[in-house]
Design a protein around this nucleic acid. Sequence first.
DNA 1: CTGAATCCCCGAGGATACTG
DNA 2: CAGTATCCTCGGGGATTCAG
Lengths: 139, 139
Amino acid sequence: MTKDGTLTRPAHTGVPALPGEAPPTCELREVLDRVGDKWSVLLMAVLGDGPRRYSELRRAVDGISQRMLTLTLRSLERDGLVVRTVTPSTPPRVDYELTEVGHTLSREVGALIRWSEAHREYISAARRSYDAEEAVREG
Amino acid sequence: MTKDGTLTRPAHTGVPALPGEAPPTCELREVLDRVGDKWSVLLMAVLGDGPRRYSELRRAVDGISQRMLTLTLRSLERDGLVVRTVTPSTPPRVDYELTEVGHTLSREVGALIRWSEAHREYISAARRSYDAEEAVREG
DNA sequence: CTGAATCCCCGAGGATACTG
DNA sequence: CAGTATCCTCGGGGATTCAG
């Protein structure tokens, strides 16, 4: 966080935006967007337990479409968080594995998941309570 | 995470889905979705530094629309993560403040932000590298 | 088995205007 | 100041099909 409490568009240091270039957005935000991505979080969590094949990931992250699985993995690979290893056998085999940095993020994600498990009862109760009072107000 | 490595739809314990009821989705997923929300993360981070007024939040989280600010705050309040305090003066004043549990989540979010700052150079470099190689492959 | 390519829909979310 | 209400767009992402 920037020291004035502003989270986005921190003093963009120079680099005049050339026409056609990406607008000078906050890098922090970009990284948070990555972290905030639903599928990314789930995949990072699974891969935290060790390398997985494409098909294994598909099964592990229930509900993910082939498209999103591939796109997300590519994105994670591009960010240097996972490495992709192709074994040109028949049938072909592709393994995905966290990088060293990927593991550090996976640990953060793990903490978040543990937080979720530890507080889901609380949240569930809070929602019921809120909805109940709301229903009262509306009659 | 469930012990078989499956992240979603963990053995839904009973509660036969009555027609018209919400489908039996994983609660963990719901909580992660909350955490994964861009605006929620940013707001939690700001509120981690102390109570803020509506207008202060609007300025702090640059780029958020009035609509999303209100919706996100309502959602956080519903989950028992923030409390909303109205002071019926003229002009009216509304303060938002983290609950005890909200603070614990804010700390997790803070860790994530620190991770982002610590690794954004790495990620940025990884992207440049990836894009460069990709450009080569495509000719 | 591991993808790439296409089509297409729906809803998250921005812009704007109005209110207590 | 702190919202609410409405409209409307845009792209995230699912389903499906084809390919190496």
